[in-house]
Amino acid sequence: MKQITIIGLFAFFTLTFLSDNAIAKERKNEKKVVLSVNMDCHACVEKIEGNIPYEKGVKDLNVSLENKTCEVTYRVDKTSPGALIKAFKKIGYSAEVKKSENEHPVVKPDTSHNGHIHQ
């Protein structure tokens, strides 16, 4: 009986997280910017992933070695693409804005080409 109670508790936590995530999707004050970065190795990716997330105002980061781009989600009231470019310079990379997002809310990334075969 006690085991069933605890399993129920786990299910409750799962559902709480699920609903919490649904709310969290509409985040305000956030923008995305795609930066072209002069990186050419996996160690560069590790270096960027180990440093950029801890810059002020950075909320999410997707690094693509193939495209030499970093997509940064940031808080507009805390940082700016200019400050992010400086942060890249600080760790030894030159970056420039490739594409910046205007007033759109955060959209879900397109996942149709993530290396799996889909029909």
Partner: peptide, 9 residues
């Protein structure tokens, strides 16, 4: 003309 959005695993 690649869409720059890449999924991070």
């Amino acid at each position: 003309e690649l869409d720059e959005v890449v999924v991070k695993e």
